[in-house]
Design a protein around this nucleic acid. Structure first.
Length: 556
RNA sequence: GCCCUCGUAGCUCAGUCGGAUAGAGCGACCGCCUCCUAAGCGGUAGGCCACAGGUUCGAUUCCUGUCGAGGGCGCCA
């Protein structure tokens, strides 16, 4: 049982004994910023003062009296402070119990939960049109979407990663026309795609000497292949690629339109079919079928989401901020089809702006100015790219300075974290060489871990389950990034100040510290896995290769 | 004009489910390798948490407004 639950239960009983009615449903217990305020603190006396008919300080004092008479496990001090906070001081033994919990759970079990209770969730992300390569901006949504999928999995959801392919419509036609024009040696149409890649792909098409190839089909295959390759380079794998065209074949689009008519959700005006999205808070009604009889992008999209609701309990879409306007209309459409719009969660990522040579590069396939995602990954490496994309909250716009990132690859915080992991493996190897093994958990004496550096690492490890749970709930993988940087910092501090091996370290302490390293390894492994970043067992900086090390392993 | 996100140290950003003295990295300055990888550790300097009101015992955090930045407002996607 987590020490917090023990304390909260004791507080609840004490409040009831004092006649506080009602006892608050939620009793907040938090770790004070200031160590002088103890290990854990509750504001319950401030919150419940009115219900108790006492001033907060008095209620706090009475609580302290009660709690001191029968202190919960690990609690060695209770006091009232400030305006009425009740602060708990704990014996270090509570952190030693945490370490035991961590190593018993292992990297499979620690910070894994059942919160999702098997809820089926489809995370749809990237979903870039197959009209050109992915650019650096797509990388953010790609890494973000994959990481929240990992978080959902770890929290007990049943997750499908899905890529929706807009493989028909006006943009596809423009793309095909652009490709065809280049193949024929003619200028690209005004509203076509003007990127260099069109030139390159046209040349490839000619080189393949398949004159009969349909530019749309050839280009579609080419673009999708390039998407897969770029994502693969980031270790992002989709479980499902859902084709817009497939819904024409299955009749899903027609069925959906019929369902909308039946629900009174649409009307005809000026030869077009409109969705009554204003009934559900949208700015204006939206066209589903154009007056020329062609569907807009929205029509198949509505059908697609209807299909997803047949397959899952919760839909999560990752979209760039430039698609924000889409939220209200899709919620409206789902509500009108009888689905709970709250089960369609749309995560908006603020845009990535790219700088190269000191200038901003606008990312647009249509104008042709772009930096390919594959190029970024090649330049900085998959781990640095992923970590960088997941460094910030997606609510903040991100500036990616290619020159800076490329020149400072070795200063990327990802290496700081990975190095902590590599150090752990290194010290274990050294211990093994010296004939020292952690042995059985039950033989270790964790009470020897009382250095402030050691306790700091243990406190960080204790936080991980909460961090993961919250990061999942808030769909905020950057919280994991922040946490793992902090764990790495605590570990490096420990490693610097506390020697694990050596003649001046008693064997029981060495053993206890090896277990601490193992606990840290588990924390790093769990967090890095959630971020999709490798946890290398060794890293050697160029030029620092020791003679006992194989130069081949210099890049981890 | 309306909608979304944001405004925190010189720079890039955490923190904000309301809590006690607001943090990190980079940059600047000063230190630490006879010792498990110095890809490491420590110290100093640096803040009207954009501004103004409101709610509260308590606001950087919640609400309203103002200013500023980015994005959106198409029978494109």
């Amino acid at each position: 049982m987590d020490v917090r639950d023990t304390i909260i239960d004791a507080v609840r009983i004490a409040l009831a004994d004092l006649g506080v009615d009602p006892v608050p449903a939620i009793i907040q217990l938090e770790r004070p910023a200031n160590a002088d305020h103890g290990d854990w603190s509750t504001n319950v006396a401030l919150v419940s003062a009115k219900a108790a008919g006492l001033n907060p300080r008095t209620l706090g004092s009475q609580l302290v009296e009660r709690l001191e008479s029968a202190p919960p496990t690990h609690v060695v001090g209770v006091e009232v402070a400030g305006p009425g906070f009740v602060n708990f001081r704990l014996a270090e033994s509570w952190l030693h119990d945490v370490l035991a919990d961590v190593v018993v759970a292992g990297s499979e079990g620690w910070a894994r939960s059942d919160e999702g209770k098997g809820t089926r969730v489809i995370v749809e992300f990237v979903s870039a049109n197959p009209t050109g390569p992915l650019h650096a901006g797509h990388g953010r949504g790609a890494c973000y979407g994959d990481s929240i999928a990992r978080l959902y999995s770890r929290c007990g959801f049943d997750v499908v990663r899905e890529f929706y392919i807009n493989d028909r419509g006006l943009q596809m036609e423009n793309f095909a026309a652009s490709l065809a024009a280049r193949v024929a040696g003619q200028p690209v149409p005004e509203d076509g795609y003007h990127g260099q890649y069109i030139v390159d792909w046209a040349a490839e098409m000619i080189a393949e000497a398949d004159a009969t190839a349909d530019p749309m089909e050839w280009g579609y295959t080419k673009a999708l292949g390039s998407h897969r390759a770029a994502l693969e380079a980031l270790s992002i794998h989709f479980d499902s690629w859902f084709s817009e065209r497939s819904m024409i074949a299955t009749g899903a689009i027609d069925d959906t339109l019929a369902a909308l008519w039946a629900a009174g959700a649409v009307y005809e005006d000026g030869g077009a079919v409109w969705l009554r999205s204003t009934d559900y808070g949208d700015d204006k009604d939206r066209v589903l079928v154009k007056s020329d009889g062609e569907p807009t992008y929205l029509m198949p999209d509505v059908a697609y989401h209807r299909d997803k609701f047949d397959r899952a309990d919760l839909l999560v879409n990752v979209l760039g901020a430039d698609h924000h306007g889409y939220v209200a209309r899709m919620h409206a459409a789902m509500a009108m089809l009888g689905h709970d719009p709250d089960k369609l969660e749309i995560a908006i990522t603020q845009l990535v702006s790219l700088h190269r040579d000191g200038c901003e590069v606008r990312l647009s396939k249509r104008t042709g100015e772009m930096v390919e995602l594959a190029e970024v990954v090649e330049d900085v490496g998959a781990d640095a790219a992923r970590f960088t994309y997941l460094l910030l909250s997606v609510d903040s716009p991100q500036t990616f300075d290619l020159d800076l990132v490329a020149s400072q690859v070795n200063e990327n915080p990802v290496f700081y974290v990975q190095y902590a992991h590599a150090r752990i493996h290194q010290v274990v190897r050294r211990a093994t060489d010296a004939g020292i093994n952690r042995g059985e958990l039950s033989d270790a004496d964790f009470s020897l871990l009382c250095h402030s550096r050691e306790l700091e690492v243990l406190r960080a490890l204790h936080e991980l389950p909460d961090v993961v749970s919250r990061a999942c709930r808030e769909r905020a993988p950057h919280q994991v990034t922040t946490w793992v940087r902090n764990l790495a910092a605590s570990f490096h501090g420990f490693y610097h100040d506390c020697r694990v091996l050596g003649e001046d370290v008693d064997q029981p302490l060495t053993i206890a510290r090896l277990w601490l390293a193992e606990g840290t390894r588990i924390g790093l492994a769990v967090a890095l896995d959630l971020l999709g970043v490798d946890a290398p067992t060794e890293m050697w900086r160029d030029g620092l290769v020791g003679q006992e090390h194989d130069p081949v392993s210099t890049s981890y």
